Simulated assay, not measured.
Amino acid sequence: MRVQRSYKSESVPGANVSGSGTLYLVATPIGNLEDMTMRAIRVLREADLIAAEDTRQTRKLLTHFEIHTRLVSYHEHNKSASGPELIRLLLEGQSIALVSDAGLPAISDPGADLVAEAAEQGIAVVPIPGANAALSALIMSGLPTERFLFAGFPPREKKTLGKWLKDLAKERATLIMYESPHRLGKTLSAMLEAFGDRRIAVIRELTKKHEEAIRGLISECIGWFEEHSPLGEFCLVIDGANESESDGQGENEVWWAELDVEAHVSHYESTMDRKEAIKQTAIDRGVPKRDVYNEVNR
């Protein structure tokens, strides 16, 4: 095994004792500008240049804190060209601060590739901690925090999403993932099918004015968002599998599995009116209410 060592000196900008510069991974606010740390402001001011995922967004942040460091673009679509150039500058002794749109860089963004190459070249990589949406959502979710897995963004294609969730279904750790508002309903429905009806916290707009956490079972959250349009960016925190689920016992067993839609609705009509029965059936099956309504009224 090869052991890599890099040396840094943060007190003075420029080259380290090894001759190369330093790659700083600088956390930026995820909504509230008051979450910007004094250390982050200093590093952004002292770095030779700042590499940003979205220069327009970052320029607003720099203007607010009166930071005038040169700004360059580094994102998914130009990383193959920009990455080697940034590594060259680092090897020449320049210091570079890497930032993402919000939160910690190198998490679900191309910054991870730059960090990997910098480490391979023996360049010092220094994290500047700060706001992070995934961990912020976890600690306010009310779900277990002693073991967790960050899964990033779910796949967009339905078949791929189903397999991706199935692969996570036996994971005992609390699951954390990001999702956009226009895909939230489909993801929750696919999650109900893959995981069963687990506890979940659906958290949006962290640190912003309309920060909100919806906690309950997956089916209950599906019902909530049928009545309230999803707005903002979401973090989903999902309870891990219990012992029987992780051992593969009783996977996806549901009482209504052998019923057709009409029989499913009829079961609920013994205790509630037809409208509520249709709504509950839709929640159970993870489908829109109108699909159930159309099925039973053909």
Rank of each mutant, 00 (worst) to 15 (best):
G196M: 02
R2F: 10
V126G: 05
L192N: 09
E193D: 15
A131F: 01
S136P: 08
A124L: 12
I67M: 03
I203L: 12
M191H: 02
L165W: 00
E117P: 04
L188V: 07
L184R: 03
A124G: 09
G286S: 07
A257H: 15
G130K: 04
T271K: 12
P84F: 07
T174Y: 01
A134L: 01
I87E: 11
D54H: 02
K60S: 11
E34R: 15
E258R: 08
R59C: 12
L135E: 03
D247W: 07
V287E: 06
K186S: 02
P129A: 11
N297S: 15
G185Q: 11
W224P: 06
A102Y: 05
R88M: 14
G111L: 00
R215E: 05
E262A: 15
S11D: 14
A97F: 00
G216I: 08
D291W: 09
V115H: 03
R42Q: 13
S270D: 10
S9V: 13
G21W: 04
L192R: 12
H77I: 09
K8W: 13
E205P: 12
S136F: 08
A52T: 07
A102W: 02
L44I: 05
L90Y: 04
R285C: 06
P230G: 03
T207L: 10
A194P: 13
S100D: 02
A133W: 01
R274C: 02
N242W: 02
L175A: 03
R156K: 14
E157F: 08
E66V: 12
T69R: 08
L61R: 02
A169D: 01
H210D: 13
E46Y: 05
A116C: 09
L217A: 09
P105Y: 00
G232Y: 01
A151E: 06
G286L: 06
G240D: 00
T22I: 11
F65P: 10
